[in-house]
Design a protein around this nucleic acid. Structure first.
Lengths: 334, 334
DNA sequence: TTGTAAGCGTTATCAG
DNA sequence: CTGATAACGCTTACAA
């Protein structure tokens, strides 16, 4: 049996109330002497309060739920780390839930988290935008904040933290334009995915500003598809640069270029999006748009924890700025 | 206020005991009629039992703690996924804890997990083997299983799941030998790290069996160090193959070879270790040793959950078999 | 087939 | 400065 507050009280010859007070540093006013005596016994008996019992009465579990599609997707680990760091810093623990973008699993987890009495949920939903997900969340009556996905409708009625995807794509494209490129293709993600759409928008904006022709080619956010598309695209056009709307696709393009005997950046400049770790291992190192998923996670955790403290809730949406990281896959052709 | 068992009982005109019984499918014998009535009300009022309260009396939280150095390390996400999948399958949730290999944090988290009343802990400790970590765990009196790290002393007194590192290195080296290579170098990790040492052992075993000369070069498990070492090593020797004891170092070797104008696999065969995701994005694709971290996680979770069910505890150590994945970075020179 | 009541380990209220 | 005692939401003998 585990040591409980009762055991401490008995051994110290005081009431459990008193023990509770010293454990929680309640100002109540406890003589220095008893305080020290109790603390010593606590130490001796290696007593740790039962958080379950405590939460039952205080009505807060100091626990958050983190719901995301799949931690194995290289985008998420950093984000998780951000969440965990900040949560822990504020005394919160976090439950990790992988949904595989499956609505049934999402439902299941939200219910589970509710049973576990989490104080808040950080939620990254299915890529395909759907009100349904958020309804489930709403119904659970647990404060939540969306993360990464769900940016699409500007005036979101929910708390959220996102990356400014349009801006990122704009920066990437602008970089190529500034280097003197004119035939610049955009390898896109699936059109139904919000982040993919926003990136296309950013590309188009930059191209239109420079009065250059739009050239879209779909790669579905996948290495293989990007490889295939590039294999077709590159030989037939005089494209001198590609903006790949994620890094994984940039890898596919690297492969295609390699097989076509094209040198990057000599014959082809490439910019990616994400700045996932592997990108530094490529030859040449990939110039890309960094979206700090760590900051994303940290910000989301911060938001929800602050929210929990406040009485009056207000909806807040944060958009983080992406950043161009110039490495070796682009070159000036002026 | 949240709906409680009382609310349901009142609305259904029964005692809370009865409600509890239907919620838990206790055989007790409940009339079909009342059962259905209660279930309907539960549905209507969207009632979910409070797991905290339940755990308080049942003495089990259906919760596990997963303690690891850093989820951002590309080795872990898959492992986490394995743990989570299996845990969830058995109705367990998991708390994620990042320790950064810091002993203070480890202590902190173990205490926290104890407070949260987790039923078991899956623990991946500091690379440097130290009894201290395990003592802390022991003292918490929570069942635990070590994962990945801690393999070193064969007759471990603790439950654990590991990869057979020696065997993996042996397989890698043997593969190169079978291809006809004779001057095979081994790029090693830090000698103090157990996994690194075991991989050296495997390499040496294969080389000695074939009567070939040992050639060790340290790369510290890091890309940059491997790059530097390779840059020095490759020009001066007639090395035709390298076994890199992790994939990240293989990347460094790729870079060095590229800059030295050596073609992989024409001029140099390379085998890695880990099979991290990025490896398929390399050109040419890396031949490597796959250690299924997913299985690692899954097995660990399985072990601890089984352990929780049993009355008589017995220490168990599982060693998983690594697997050679042949891709395009090696070639026969017979 | 159902209900009463004790108890899980805490905190919070109120009294002294 | 300290202590009874109720309460949190649930499960589980034991009764009926």
């Amino acid at each position: 049996m585990r040591v409980t507050i009762k055991d401490i009280a008995k051994k110290a010859g005081v009431s459990i109330t008193t023990v509770s007070r010293v454990m929680n540093d309640k100002l109540g006013g406890i003589s220095q002497e008893t305080k020290e005596r109790i603390l010593k016994i606590v130490e001796e008996m290696n007593y740790q309060p039962n958080a379950l019992a405590r939460s039952l009465v205080t009505k807060q579990s100091l626990t958050l739920g983190l719901v995301l599609p799949n931690i194995s997707n290289p985008f998420f680990p950093e984000m998780v780390r951000g969440v965990e760091d900040l949560a822990n810093h504020h005394g919160y623990s976090v439950f990790l839930c992988n949904t595989d973008d499956d609505e049934e699993k999402e439902k299941h987890y939200i219910q589970l988290l509710k049973e576990k009495y989490v104080d808040g949920i950080i939620f990254s939903s299915n890529s395909r935008y759907s009100e349904a997900h958020y309804e489930i969340l709403q119904k659970a009556h647990i404060p939540f904040v969306l993360i990464d996905r769900g940016e699409e409708d500007g005036n979101s009625p929910y708390n959220g933290v996102f990356i400014d995807n349009e801006k990122g794509a704009y920066l990437a494209t602008k970089h190529l334009i500034d280097l003197g490129h004119e035939k610049i293709a955009c390898m896109t993600g699936p059109k139904e995915v919000g982040t993919a759409r926003r990136r296309i928008l950013g590309y188009q904006k930059a191209m239109m500003e420079a009065n250059l022709p739009i050239l879209l080619e779909t790669g579905n956010f996948r290495m293989k598809d990007a490889y295939t598309s590039a294999k077709k695209l590159l030989p037939s056009n005089e494209i001198s640069a590609i903006f790949a709307s994620n890094d994984v696709m940039a890898c596919g393009i690297y492969q295609a270029a390699y097989e076509l005997g094209m040198n990057i950046p000599k014959d082809l400049s490439v910019v990616g999006f994400d700045d996932i770790q592997l990108v530094e291992a490529l030859t040449p190192k990939l110039t890309t748009i960094r979206q700090s998923s760590y900051t994303l996670g940290k910000t989301a955790a911060e938001m929800i924890i602050q929210d929990l403290k406040k009485a009056k809730k207000e909806t807040k949406v944060v958009k983080l700025d992406p950043e161009l990281v110039i490495r070796q896959s682009t070159r000036s052709i002026k």
